[in-house]
Write a protein that binds this DNA or RNA. Structure first.
Lengths: 148, 148
DNA sequence: CAGGATCCAGTAGGATACTG
DNA sequence: CAGTATCCTACTGGATCCTG
């Protein structure tokens, strides 16, 4: 019976999909978004960054702007990540045919629904860095290990 | 909510760490936790899984139990992931010298502080799967289907 | 400016076999 | 049961060159 609303089907989906199962499509989606570049891109497009506040709203950004903000990302990985996010409906790509082409990316509703979690992950990493470093030091000594 | 926990204040205060910078230690930590196995292990140890509710509390699990729950994980990756999490102070490893050795893993306070986000990521993937598939289909057609 | 196409090194990660 | 060790492949991802 295909006469269901999107909301109804989605509600069902939550029960069917289980990322613990290797064959479940949601496992692949989980792999997709469990990526540092995805996290950083969504955080950047979500308005995160130096001089911004947790409540700042999403804003469109140009390619070069993203690349500047996310230091260390290669143009290949940035392009690749943005393509994947666009394909999955999390960002929109807008081309403005100016003299040198201008392309800007913006979060969709779907993207914004994930962006919060991603900013959370990023913030967690930043906020618990020292705690982790402390545990790490103790572990490496205690185990006599040549860890890392 | 004006009352913040120490962890939350620490997260805000440590503005010195910024994962947008490639050289920042938090970038490496972000890479570490942006991993599907990390997400699944933390979700499993966090009490997520078939027949469980979002509010379920963390519970210690044995190695084989984890491997069964997280289908598709190789023993190598599970061991590797658990070691990394232990080293970073997110899980504790307890060895009980029974006849065949019994080892159980449990979330630490630090681990629990991340487990919520990870369960969120997993739940997001499961809950938005169809929406993503829809967008994906439209994208592949519209762009000449040369995508990925 | 934005990004496609290549080449190529490093490594993630699976399969398998062995151990306490 | 819970690993450790080894081998080996496939993919990740950086560097570089080229185009509209």
């Amino acid at each position: 019976m295909a006469t269901r609303t999107a909301a109804e089907r989605r509600a069902e989906a939550k029960a069917e999909y289980d990322a613990f199962f290797a064959q479940c499509p949601s496992r692949q989606l989980l792999e997709r978004i469990s990526d540092k570049w995805v996290a950083l891109v969504l955080a950047a497009l979500g308005g995160d960054g130096p001089g911004t506040n947790p409540g700042d709203e999403p804003m469109p950004m140009r390619f070069s702007e993203l690349q500047r903000r996310i230091s260390g990302v290669s143009q290949k990985m940035l392009t690749q990540t943005l393509r994947a996010l666009e394909r999955d409906g999390m960002v929109t790509r807008t081309v403005t045919p100016t003299v040198p082409v201008t392309v800007s990316y913006e979060l969709t509703g779907l993207g914004r629904s994930l962006q919060g979690l991603m900013k959370g992950i990023k913030a967690w990493a930043e906020g618990h860095m020292e705690e982790v470093l402390t545990h790490r030091g103790g572990f490496d000594q205690g185990q006599g290990a040549a860890a890392d």
